[in-house]
């Protein structure tokens, strides 16, 4: 449980642009233990998704590298399942068939037909989608689509579950509901999870550690916060919990004081009138 499971060492990436290479990330170092729930938080454009995509193998790091269980990651694979921000279900397949596509790839040889079927249904029931197995993505709501996306990822029995703002596009009630489901599932299965989020409450509620990223270009890890709240966590009880609020304000302070992205309008105005060129640079 305590040994290093996933390790990012000196990870950096730069993209070629007509004006020369653009360095999006640099010096990202992170060690993640088996079964740990890690959130990446930061302002938009700070390279959170890039980190996730590098771990997923969808991007290649320019410098440094990612090691999972002693093996270097350099291509995508089902042992690092991704839950995409906008569900990314194939619209021409039903919920069942979407999960089936993944299960067939991963367990096509090791499981019999009946076992695979049972496994697909089990995973869809795990996310409470057992009632809509044969509905197409167009016929179900956004939250349900995201559930199917999570079921598809879980069904691959991944060593690491990568979630790119999985609940970002959902309304607050659905989001809370899915967060609770995710906590239950993670407690049951003990997956290692890396989740990107914009939502401070979500980060504190779900994570064992919160990785706070600095603003780009050349973004890196600013601070890492250990969230030492007992599990299972209950959102209502935590609302008045002093520790919870302490963690919450720590993250908020990082985002809005240390790594402020947007200048207050009044400050911007005064700066603009005094020194025009500098404002451009800041903005």
């Amino acid at each position: 449980m305590s040994k290093t499971h996933l390790e990012l060492t000196q990870v950096g990436i730069s993209f070629p642009t007509p004006k020369g290479p653009f360095c999006a990330l640099q010096d990202v170092n992170l060690k993640i233990k088996q079964g740990e729930f890690v959130s990446l938080i930061g302002h938009s454009g700070c390279g959170k998704s890039t980190v996730l995509n590098i771990v997923a193998g969808l991007y290649q790091a320019t410098t440094g590298g990612v090691v999972l269980n002693g093996r270097e990651v350099n291509e995508p694979g089902p042992e690092r399942a991704v839950v995409f921000q906008n569900h990314s279900l194939l619209p021409w397949l039903s919920a069942y068939q979407n999960v089936e596509l993944a299960v067939k790839r991963v367990f096509g040889r090791s499981k019999s037909r009946a076992e695979m079927r049972e496994w697909i249904e089990h995973n869809l029931e795990l996310v409470q989608m057992g009632h809509a197995l044969h509905k197409k993505p167009d016929e179900i709501s956004g939250g349900m689509k995201q559930r199917v996306g999570i079921a598809r990822a879980l069904a691959m029995e991944p060593q690491v579950l990568l979630m790119d703002e999985p609940f970002g596009a959902l309304d607050a009630l659905t989001r809370a509901h899915l967060q609770d489901s995710l906590m239950d599932i993670q407690a049951e299965l003990g997956n290692t999870v890396i989740m990107i989020t914009h939502d401070v409450d979500e980060a504190v509620l779900l994570s064992d550690r919160i990785v706070m990223m600095t603003n780009g270009p050349a973004a890196s890890i600013g601070e890492i916060l250990d969230v030492d709240l007992p599990r299972p966590r209950d959102r209502l009880a935590l609302a008045d919990n002093a520790d919870y609020n302490h963690y919450r304000s720590a993250v908020l302070r990082f985002l809005y004081e240390k790594q402020r992205k947007v200048e207050p309008i009044s400050a911007k105005r005064s700066a603009k009138s005094s020194e025009k060129s500098k404002t451009h640079h800041v903005a």
Partner: peptide, 11 residues
């Protein structure tokens, strides 16, 4: 995104 799904699944 669908292409990424395909890559992650190594179809």
């Amino acid at each position: 995104d669908l292409q990424n799904v395909s890559r992650v699944l190594r179809l």
